[in-house]
Design a protein around this nucleic acid. Structure first.
Lengths: 338, 338
DNA sequence: GAAACGACCGAAATCGTTTTCGCTCAACAT
DNA sequence: ATGTTGAGCGAAAACGATTTCGGTCGTTTC
């Protein structure tokens, strides 16, 4: 049924209700004291009957608020941006604001294009989601509306940012391993160019240091892949250092580690306790054993970013607000036996 | 620098260029013959100078085209919807239309809410992405604009749909296995309630039948999890039927299969060739060995859906158009040795 | 030299809604 | 009877852009 019936406007409602558009508007918006109960009811009924939906665009021309925000990301897989989007939807839901999602795909030209499109669509604000948790160039000076950076902070200190705490994430895992009585802890990380890699190492070593311990071997850096996890695990286990715990730099790396360690005849977690970062469900929950991992709570990041943006829209927040979402350790059988 | 400078309007441009808004408009839109070269250049220059960006909302009130479409999904993980979104962006890019992404999260109430929001925002059209490839309820009668269903078809035959071909996917894998000389082929599927599961079986068996073959054992149904893959693989390998190839129902299932088969001492692909459906990179590319898998080409689905929607916007397409995107087999080492 | 023409520009209407302001009319006080 | 309310409604302006329709010129044509 492709009856793309003409859109019914306030004018139509007013006409069939026998009042002026102004009165109809007041009736529907519940302007008390300006319209009688009787006509209010009548207009409401007619509007319902005709299936009237107010044109948000026309409304926006007055309020200069469109009830829309842009979310710009570079994250192809959507591992960060979708949970963040969902969190944002959660807190915007009450505000009844909708989200434009745009993928810049790491291309500044494409990003500029999206930026222009969003500005011309008069979005009230912007959430910029970085692909990696390093700082990224600010776009705030290029747009006439508030911007909040999520996951990756902006390079400009005056911008609003909601980020993760990779140092804390490292601490969480290290504390967990120590609490389990492990003392010979190794770390197989990913690409050392990522600040996340460095900060997690920092968190781990600082906790160990508090107990007068050190990593049993120098952290191994490579790439964020299973293949690297396998290779590094073999090197590590064939080395001279005793190992009773391995911290993988990501869930992908950890998959490789677990496979190799098991293949070499060690039991997990009895001989080797394993933990990881990301808590990405498809990799973590179905594994054998399921993997203990740090969850960075992307959804919460989205919620907080949206909240911050809402405040910024009302200029109710100082420049350069920074929020950090505390990560959370999710414990599974790879570190603690059943 | 939170200089949220007042937005510059066409009026401003006109004023500083010393012309009327109408002339400014014509100049910027290149209305030839209605404005002299000189003033055109002057207005353009001023607009550039002031950083003028036309208000798309105001423009939309004339054209009754907002250059926005809604994309509604239920897919929490974004495995389908993000690639589809990217594909849609690709073909919409030229049209300079932006996409509202909304997640219904499987909740009809939430979906209705989003639907209302999109209608009130005057989106030109809608793309509805189903979470599973079964048919889903139509929403077309509830909105005054064209709708295209992607991935999951609509229950209403008059709707436009772009879907995958699960039967063909099954055929592709089966043909591949036969071409490799495998004759004792088993299939470990997922939840039998999914039409995708049934159709893939259908594709596989039909190809085998053409060669007077049958699956070496009845297809095993369970859930779309690694755990099920492990359990089923063990049952299968310990059974009486000879097996030289296993087709996993999804990449997650296949992870479990491979792990178990390897643990039982078989070599992949020498003893057992393995293939799968989905071609989901994080599960498929880093595996040991990497997994042969059928790619359903979500991006292409998005592109086609967007194209179909564009046509529907111009009423240039008959009711009930159905498009099927041909899946593609991606061959890796789990089926073909190096 | 008058008429016709074309190039260039601006006034005004329009899109759909909200808001301000003024109008009308009944009810009430004086 | 006149003046004062105030409740209820509508006319009109406004948001920012586009488009139609004239209007003002200077130039060409017979």
């Amino acid at each position: 049924m492709e009856i793309h019936r003409k859109r019914v406007t306030l004018r139509d409602v007013a006409a069939t209700a026998g009042v002026s558009p102004s009165t109809a508007s007041k009736a529907l918006n519940g302007r008390r004291g300006q319209v009688s109960e009787a006509t209010q009811a009548r207009v409401r009924h007619v509007a319902e009957d005709l299936g009237f939906t107010p044109n948000a665009l026309a409304q926006a021309m007055h309020t200069t608020r469109t009830g829309t925000v842009g979310l710009i990301t570079d994250d192809l897989e959507g591992r960060f941006s979708l949970p963040i989007l969902m969190g944002a939807e959660d807190t915007f839901g009450a505000d009844r604001t909708s989200v434009f999602l745009c993928d810049g795909r790491g291309d500044p030209i494409r990003e500029s294009h999206h930026l222009r499109a969003l500005v011309s669509r008069q979005v009230d604000g912007l959430i910029v989601v970085g692909a990696r948790p390093d700082t990224r160039p600010s776009v705030s000076h290029r747009v006439p509306m508030p911007v909040v950076y999520a996951y990756a902070a902006s390079e400009d200190d005056n911008d609003h940012c909601v980020t993760t705490d990779n140092v804390r994430a490292g601490e969480l895992v290290a504390e967990h391993m120590l609490a389990l009585g492990r003392r010979n802890i190794a770390h197989i990380s990913g690409d050392p160019a990522y600040s996340a890699a460095q900060e997690r190492v920092e968190g781990i070593t600082s906790v160990l240091a508090e107990h007068n311990l050190n990593l049993t071997a120098r952290p191994l850096f490579g790439s964020w892949t299973e293949t690297w996890g396998r290779a590094a695990a073999r090197v590590l286990m064939e080395g001279d250092h005793p190992v009773d715990a391995i911290i993988g730099g990501s869930d992908r790396i950890t998959r490789g580690i677990i496979e190799t360690v098991k293949a070499m005849g060690y039991r997990i977690p009895e001989d080797i306790a394993v933990a990881s970062f990301d808590n990405w469900d498809p990799l973590v929950s179905g594994g054998q054993p399921p993997v203990t991992s740090v969850d960075f709570r992307f959804k919460e990041i989205g919620r907080r970013a949206a909240r911050l943006l809402s405040l910024a829209l009302d200029s109710a927040v100082p420049e350069g607000s920074r929020e950090v979402v505390e990560p959370q350790l999710v414990i599974r059988e790879s570190s603690v036996g059943l």
